[in-house]
Nucleic acid binder design. Structure first.
Lengths: 202, 202
DNA sequence: GTGGGGTTTGAACATTGTTCAGATTCATCC
DNA sequence: GGATGAATCTGAACAATGTTCAAACCCCAC
């Protein structure tokens, strides 16, 4: 049986994550099984449990990777003069990312942690970095002393765009009309930003 | 075995749905099993499959019920003079509803249909009615000839509020800060509506 | 060489959705 | 009353799932 170190533990962890990610990307979160991962990398299912606590941990790690890539995509955007255009670019880039990886993205929100457990710290930290990108994009709309409101606005936008995208991916909104998610996101950002300007002027 | 008609088929369907709903409300979507439902109503698991195609159909029916109740809650709100206050009341009522039924509400979005299948027509219709309530609330902000934009705004708000609520329920946002979902929803509605006013004036 | 410790497996267990032959009961007709 | 047939219900079965773990194995250090 055992064939000691075809791969180092670290390499094996990476192999498992790559295989799991490929499965989700191709067939969705529901298709992810321990035996399926194992078959793809030529190991047995038991091996996975030596490197990860359980499948949930594997999933969390994939989610972290996805967030990491999203952050990279958002950070890579060229700076714009017009702050509103910058925010829209963020929104569209976000949408493009989810469109390019619909199954992977859907997983982030279909996957509910088991009841007792808390999201680990490193997960919250990854999410925090994505939010930070949004917070930077919102800087032109707030005075420095209103940082709390800016942070809240980032959260509102993140959650809202997430809502649009997730309903669109799950086909639970678009079947009512064929309105595209892109149009909704544009509407959201435009109108919300207009509202920010309006409020500032008060 | 068989004990013919303790309940009519319709009554049995209702029994199954009640039991399933109770399980989800108490322990979440993940705890819903055919055998669990059966045990709760004193039947065997097989019986469920005489009345429903499969568990997914049971779930869809519960979702429809939840949407129905949400629509009732939103419709029951007293009319307000101030349109913005009316929208905020809608948002808060929505949030209150989800807070009162967090597990049931979470199910609406954790539950992804099996890959091939489409959401049935009656499901889309139920969702459409909830959206219609929002569309009515948005009427004061649009001229009659801009119905398409109003409908889009309803969709944006629905999806956005859903995003906030679902992230909050899943604990994937609040662990970054303790910002409450209510504050985010208020912010969203206030700012978005301000943006609508701004745009109208252009 | 020869332990010993890390690695891997394969079989096992509990649970899941789902199916279905047969057992049971009820309504109806003769 | 008794028999017939349809509706109803069960229990056992199947395949698949996550997860565990004793054993089998291999490599490295001594």
């Amino acid at each position: 049986m055992a064939r000691r170190s075809d791969h180092t533990p670290e390499a094996l962890r990476a192999l498992i994550l790559d295989a799991a990610e490929a499965i989700v990307a191709a067939d969705g979160f529901a298709a992810l099984t321990a035996r399926g991962i194992a078959a793809r990398i030529g190991y047995s299912a038991g091996t996975i449990y030596h490197l990860f606590e359980n499948l949930d941990e594997v999933v969390l790690h994939i989610e972290a990777r996805v967030l990491e890539r999203l952050e990279a995509a958002l950070t890579a955007l060229p700076p714009t003069k017009d702050p509103e255009a910058g925010l829209k670019a963020l929104g569209r880039s976000y949408l493009a990312f989810t469109r390019a990886n619909p199954k992977l993205w859907g997983m982030l929100f279909e996957h509910a942690l088991p009841k007792g457990s808390k999201t680990p710290d490193w997960y919250a930290e990854r999410l925090g970095r994505v939010l930070a990108v949004l917070e930077r994009g919102l800087q032109p709309f707030f005075r420095a002393e209103h940082a709390a409101e800016r942070i809240r606005a980032a959260r509102v936008l993140w959650a809202s765009v997430h809502g649009i995208v997730s309903l669109s991916v799950a086909d639970k909104l678009t079947n009512v009309t064929t309105e595209s998610a892109a149009a909704l996101i544009d509407d959201l950002v435009t109108t919300y930003v207009a509202g920010l300007g309006h409020r500032k002027r008060r």
